[in-house]
Structures are given as C-alpha cells and as structure tokens.
Design a binder for these strands. Structure first.
Length: 427
RNA sequence: GGAGGGGUGGCCGAGCGGACGAAGGCGCGGCGCUGGAAACGCCGUGUGCCCGUUUUACGGGCACCGAGGGUUCGAAUCCCUCCCCCUCCGCCA
C-alpha cells in the first residue's frame, strides 16, 4: 500500500513513477487523490459536529445531575445526532472506496528499475556457468521423467486433472532431497527454518498483496473462508503482521518449504507439458524483514543466497533485473534467476527475489521501534530459494545422457544415499 | 460437533452507564541513591487520523477497550450478530 501522505505531497512524482508500470495505474491514482480530498473534507465536518455533540452532551449530563433537566437541549441533541449519522454514513462510504482503491494500486518501482513494457525489456545482469553441449538431441524433462519412471502426468490427471504431477520412486526422493538440500544450505547462511500453515485467512493475503486484486489466481476453501497459499511468502511474511519489532532484532531471515497452489487462470495453453506450470508445486522460500536503510543490500545478499543453490547444483543460470512493466504487484525491485533449459534452448525462471520496501509492511502494519521509541515500517523481502519442480526439471534436462539416464548432481548425492545416476526402467 | 470461559495499552491485568485514554504491575525513558551497578525511591511513558502553526516539533479536535450494529443525552461497561482464542468432552493423523 502506498503512503497517502506521500501521494498528497509528491503527487506528480508518484503518478509518473506509477505510470511506468502502465498508464492505467496513473488513472487509478487520480481517483484515489480526488477521493482522499473529498474524504478529508467530510471527515473534518464530522469531527467538528461530533465535538459539538460531545460538549453539549456533557453539559446535559451535568444539568441532569443537578436535577435541572432541559427538554430543549435534549431535542437539540437528538437533531444534532441525526445530522451526524448522515454525514458519518457518507464518510464511511468514502473511506471504504478509498481503501479498496488504495489496496489495488501496485508498489512504486525503485528508481533504479529499468523502464519497460514487458519481459522483453528486462535487463540481464550476469550469467553463471556454461550451457551443456550435447552431441545428441536433448529431450524435454517430461519425456525423460516418464522414461525414467519418476514422473507420471497421466495418473495425476486421472485423479486431479491437468497441471498436476505424480512423482514416484527416485522422482519423489529427488524432491525430498532437493528440499532438504536447500533448507540445509540456507540454514547454514543464517535463515531460520519455519514450517507454516498452507491455508491462510484473507487478511494475510491482503498483507502480502495477493488480495483484493488477484483473487482469481487463488484456490479458495469457500466454506471456511481460507485460501491455499500461492507461495510461502504469504504465511512467512505475515508471521509478524501487526507487530512492533525491536530494532536490534532486525534483520530477520526465514526459510520455509511449502507446497504452493495456483489456479493459473488465464495461462491456458502455456507450458501445458512438464513441471513448469502446475497447480501445485513445491518451493523453498526465503523471507527477510529488515530496516529500510539496509533492504537493498539485503536484496543483493538474498539473490546471492538463491544463486548459491544453482551454483552448488552446477546448473547454468542468469540473473535478470525485471523492468517496470514486468514487476510484480508488491515489488519495488525484482531479480529473477533463470536456469538454462536445454529442451527450450533458453533460460527459465526458477526464482524471483524482490524487495517490497514498506509496501507489504504498511498493509500488514508491520513496524519496528528504535531505542528512542520511534516507530517505522519495516521493509520486507522475499525470494525463491528455489522452486523445486523447475529445479528438478533443470536437473533432468541438463544432466541427461544420450541413453536417457540422468546423472545426479554431486551436491545432491548425500541426500540420495549416494546414488549418482538414474537409469531408464527396462521394459 | 457438544459444554463452558475469555478477547482491555508494548506485555500482564483491574474496571462492568458520565468524573475512564482507562487502576495496579511489568517493560521502557529520565532523575535521585552509588566508586560503579543491582535493589530501592520519585517523575514520565499508547496508537491512528484530521486541522492549524513558527512544519523532523508544538497546539487543537476526533476516534480507538476483538469486529459490526443497537439502546441511551452519554457505552470499555447494557442488548444483538459475527469473528477469534482458550479449557473440557466427542471425533481424528
């Protein structure tokens, strides 16, 4: 949520920066600005009227205790109250509309973010590793997985429909190995491991920015008014919602493994095959809660921590800085990590690391207090470290051999009882 | 699912129609005591919003005792609805 005071004070600048995400947001901002002006006007009148009513009411009480009831005053009070109630109703409507609109305005991009329309304007920051060269035609991971008997899309569809997968045998064990490997790695780098609920209340989703705007993307348990988490970012960042943390406790580092559930509405026909886009996938998520002064250095460190996973798995990747038009709703700045995928002959996203500054903190009233008692909103950051399914896909594709077998990355072998290669099942 | 008990300031906890932004304690800040500290004593210490000014401060106003509605001239306090938490029983991995 943007700071209304900032909108009032630096209207033109906010409008200009917001417009780099798309013109429509500038128009939204215009409505917010006007609504805010009107709201304050009505609020002022309401408060004046209420002050008058309070004063006269006290006066009435005093008289009554002295045994001097004043029927005229009583009538006057009733009339005042009736007028006040009308005005209050108007104020309530204005506040509601203003608040709803405000929750639908995305975060301001950081000044360093390249201005652009979409994915094609993102800026490559660096590359690591060499894409492998094959002297045969590399197969896509779903073919490899099915041949190896570790991925079963057909049976998944039977029980749950499209965009689900069953992993079996070494496929299932690889997921467990990857999760453990990632959590161990991040644990050593100072992240506290947390295990969190996968069903959350609407307030939590408002806090991180998925609601009210992106209801369509979520699975909802209607009866209980709970949502399946689309990312661990939601429960983890909300751990401290409405809290006032102590300055000396910051920054906080968390790492969580959770499954993630996404409806993928509007992505029909995209990535219909394989592990890339599923309704349910596994992810290890990193979350940081920091002071404003340090959030950008913390972002760089967060990216480095996510990169470390790919480096240890020896998977070639690149780091991309998202442009304004491609930036997520809550993010002020985002780096994506993209891993090399031979069958696509391109890099594909396995991690997205964002600094949300105080955008989420404001929505969830997450603050910290300095030694002298001043309170400020925290900054929140999150990043995948990493998306497990896509990492598994990348391993299958990058480590494949001509006979369809797949070599296990060295870093993972201790987690798989020393197994160093998966061979196709004989049929 | 059944029965009961609760939700009050950063935290604990009292209040149960006006004198209540709310006792007391803890915590925090200041001062005193001390060689220094602990203990002790005294003083201070909520948040949000709106308006104004001499605009990182001060003054005024309004709101806030889980949320929303109601009764009343007046509600933390009475009534209704909802939400949440806890305990016991049932069910259950």
């Amino acid at each position: 949520m943007l700071d209304l005071k900032l909108i009032r004070k630096n209207y033109e600048e906010v409008r200009r920066r917001l417009a780099t995400r798309g013109e429509e947001y500038a128009k939204l901002l215009d409505r917010v600005y006007e609504l805010d002006r009107k709201k304050r006007e009505v609020q002022k009148r309401v408060e004046e009227l209420r002050a008058l009513l309070n004063r006269k009411s006290k006066e009435y009480g005093r008289l009554k205790r002295e045994g001097k009831e004043d029927e005229n005053l009583k009538r006057e009070l009733s009339e005042l109250k009736a007028r006040l109630q009308e005005l209050e109703e108007e104020l309530r409507r204005l506040e509601e509309e203003l608040n709803d609109l405000l929750l639908r305005i995305p975060n301001l991009p950081h000044p360093s973010v390249p201005v652009g329309r979409d994915e094609s304007d993102n800026r490559e920051v660096r590359r690591w590793g060499e894409p492998p060269k094959f002297d045969f035609e590399p197969k896509p991971h779903w073919e490899l997985g099915e041949k190896l008997g570790i991925l079963d899309f057909e049976r998944a569809a039977k029980i749950s429909g499209s965009r689900f997968v069953v992993k079996r045998g070494l496929g299932a064990r690889l997921v467990r190995a990857l999760v453990n490997f990632m959590l161990d790695l991040h644990g050593r780098r100072g992240y506290e491991e947390v295990y969190v609920p996968h069903l959350v209340r609407p307030e939590a989703l408002i806090g991180t920015g998925q609601l009210p705007k992106f209801e369509e993307d979520l699975f909802k348990c209607e009866r209980d008014d709970l949502y399946l988490i689309p990312t661990a970012e939601v429960p983890v960042t909300n751990l401290h919602r409405e809290e006032i943390l102590r300055e000396e406790d910051l920054p906080l580092y968390y790492a969580a493994y959770t499954p993630c559930y996404r409806r993928e509405a509007g992505s029909y026909g995209r990535d219909v095959k394989g592990l890339i886009r599923l309704h349910q996938f596994d992810k290890v998520e990193l979350v940081k809660i920091t002071k404003p002064e340090t959030s950008y250095e913390e972002l760089e460190k967060l990216v480095a921590d996510a990169e470390r996973v790919l480096q240890e798995l020896e998977l070639p990747y690149r780091v991309v800085e998202l442009c304004t038009g491609d930036l997520g709703f809550s993010a002020a700045k985002t780096y994506d990590l993209e891993v090399w995928m031979p069958s696509y002959n391109r890099y594909r996203e396995v991690s997205s690391c964002s600094n949300c500054e105080d955008f989420q903190a404001r929505r969830m009233k997450l603050r910290y207090k300095t030694a002298d008692g001043k309170k400020f909103f925290c900054h929140t950051l999150n990043g995948s470290g990493l998306a497990v399914g896509r990492t598994l896909a990348a391993i299958l594709e990058n480590y494949q051999q001509e006979d369809g077998s797949v070599v296990i990355p060295k870093a993972l072998r201790p987690y798989l009882g020393g197994i160093d290669v998966i061979k196709p099942q004989k049929d």
